[in-house]
């Protein structure tokens, strides 16, 4: 079963880079302890392009920054597409310029593209996505290992991890 891990966001915009940093951490972990049929990519795209990246894979795990006033920066959450629909437009996925991810996926399916049924989003709550900078704020940077662990747990079939509270997931 082919799984694609996509680190989303702009690594030059402070906390927005958390998805890409997490993807790199996942890549490093996989280099040490490989899981078969997993590809890790980074992409600052949404909507149609994101949907197209997923064509052909059986499962996709997206990692993205999430601006949510309710959550403290650094909190890690596991979301599904249904959750995305409920909170739309999530980061990157709505625009005068693109379709939302759920719309793009619906369009892709309508056109008969082979798209994964199993799509999980590991979201990291962020605070600053408006200043240029290559390093996330401390709480968000500190969450990278946890977010990477969440992705690896998905990959290794141990996704029963509890997601609660900021910064800690046991």
């Amino acid at each position: 079963m082919a799984t694609l891990v996509i680190g989303l966001g702009n690594p030059l915009l402070t906390d927005d880079g958390v998805g890409v940093l997490t993807a790199r951490a996942v890549q490093d972990a996989l280099a040490a302890h490989p899981v078969p049929n997993v590809e890790v990519v980074e992409a600052g795209v949404g909507g149609l392009r994101l949907m197209e990246l997923m064509v052909g894979c059986d499962r996709a795990i997206l990692i993205d920054a999430w601006t949510d006033a309710e959550l403290p920066p650094g909190a890690v959450r596991r979301l599904t597409l249904a959750d995305l629909e409920a909170i739309r437009p999530p980061q990157h996925l709505a625009s005068a310029h693109d379709a939302t991810l759920p719309t793009a996926l619906a369009a892709g399916r309508r056109l008969g593209l082979k798209l994964p049924e199993d799509i999980v989003i590991i979201a990291v709550a962020v605070s600053n996505v408006t200043d240029f900078g290559e390093t996330p704020t401390p709480a968000v940077l500190a969450a990278v290992p946890q977010a990477a662990a969440a992705v690896l747990a998905e990959l290794r079939g141990a996704a029963e991890t509890q997601w609660q509270g900021p910064g800690v997931a046991q």
Binding site: V45, G46, H92, S95, A96, H97
Partner: peptide
Amino acid sequence: IEMAFRNYDPCMSCATHSLPGQMPL
């Protein structure tokens, strides 16, 4: 209003150096 500015194919993410493609209205 959307039609009025969409024909310009605006990319505000570009104009603002912002998040990729994001511009709800």
